Simulated scan of single mutants.
Amino acid sequence: MSNPIFVALDTPILDNALELAKSVEGHVGGLKLGLEFFCANGHHGVHEIQKIGLPIFLDLKLHDIPNTVAKAMQAINVLEPAIVTVHASGGRAMMEDAKAAAGINTKVVGVTLLTSLDQRDMTSIGYNGSPHDQVERLANLSAEAGLDGIVCSGNEVGAAHKVWKDGYFVVPGLRPANGKAGDQKRTVTPRAARDDGASVLVIGRPITAAENPNSAARSIEATL
């Protein structure tokens, strides 16, 4: 992929998503549509965004029993997404069924640990070990289940890349130098994540909330 940036169109309003996508399409490599967009606009909304002509990343973070996740994956195959997310914590059987049900050209990646969580959050929900330990554990499980790769923060992507050389690594929660972290707790710059082995750089508010999204996207692209 010549441009690894997928801009996160995290809005339930289709017209806003279309306007944002069109304003930055020359400086990004793909478009990420999250749960709020999909719940509001469904298949129709995805079809409309696809008309722009960039690869679509459906960030649905599927997490349920294996049979349900497989059927959900089958239901979105008609959309031919480039990437779909499932929660790696759903277990090996769930991930195996998700991958088996996915379209041949769709990469299925396992979400390891949300970038909004830190050590304190992990402890409060009963996870033992550090964020690094959790990502490594679920990266290994994702590989064993036959997924294409994982979603992890830029803090862990380097270590994950070392042990999974041909893995596909999606890194969200990125912030340009001197950018505001917002609700993200484990951030790095897009360039640092790319240097450490990220395949896809998911960037939202630093582009979409900028006064000039096109200029912001162009500036970030220039750092890569």
Rank of each mutant, 00 (worst) to 15 (best):
V28N: 03
N16H: 04
K165V: 08
F169I: 11
V188K: 09
G53I: 00
L141F: 02
I203E: 15
S116E: 07
S89N: 12
D183C: 05
I5C: 01
C152Q: 07
I83S: 06
S130Y: 05
D15K: 06
G167L: 05
I150S: 03
R191G: 08
P55V: 01
V135W: 05
A139I: 01
L58N: 06
G197S: 05
F37I: 04
H87T: 09
Y168F: 15
A209L: 06
A88Y: 01
L141A: 13
R186G: 00
K107T: 02
A72F: 10
G182H: 01
L113P: 07
P176M: 03
D148H: 15
L62F: 14
H63I: 03
G182S: 06
E144I: 00
L35G: 04
D196I: 01
N128Y: 11
A181M: 05
T123Y: 12
S124A: 13
G45D: 09
G26K: 10
V108D: 14
P190C: 02
V202E: 01
G167K: 08
I220T: 11
V170K: 00
T85Q: 04
S89M: 15
S116Q: 09
A70V: 08
G42C: 11
G29N: 06
V202P: 03
C39F: 12
D118I: 10
T85F: 08
G197H: 02
S199N: 13
R205Y: 00
V135Q: 06
G204A: 04
N128D: 15
H63A: 10
L113W: 00
D196P: 03
E80T: 14
L141S: 11
T208P: 09
C39Y: 12
L113S: 07
H132M: 15
G149R: 04
A193P: 06
L35T: 08
L54S: 01
L14H: 03
P131C: 04
E156L: 07
R175V: 00
Q119Y: 02
N155C: 05
K107Q: 12
S142I: 02
A98D: 14
S116I: 01
F37Y: 07
L224D: 11
G204W: 01
N16L: 02
D121S: 11
G173D: 02
T68R: 15
L117C: 06
T223P: 15
S130E: 09
V109C: 04
L20F: 03
H47C: 12
N212R: 08
C152M: 06
A75V: 09
D15Y: 00
I83Q: 08
G26E: 10
D183I: 01
R191C: 07
K71M: 09
K185S: 00
K22D: 14
D10H: 06
H63P: 01
A82H: 10
V111H: 00
K61E: 09
G34C: 11
G154L: 03
M73D: 13
L35C: 08
V24R: 10
D183T: 02
P4N: 13
V46N: 15
D133P: 07
I65F: 14
I5S: 03
A216R: 13
E221D: 13
N77S: 10
A100M: 11
A101Y: 00
A193E: 03
G173L: 00
G204R: 08
I13F: 13
E80A: 15
G129C: 11
Y168T: 14
S219F: 06
S219R: 15
E211H: 11
P4V: 07
L33V: 05
V151H: 02
K165I: 07
V7K: 12
A139H: 05
D10R: 08
G149P: 02
I150N: 10
A8I: 04
L114H: 12
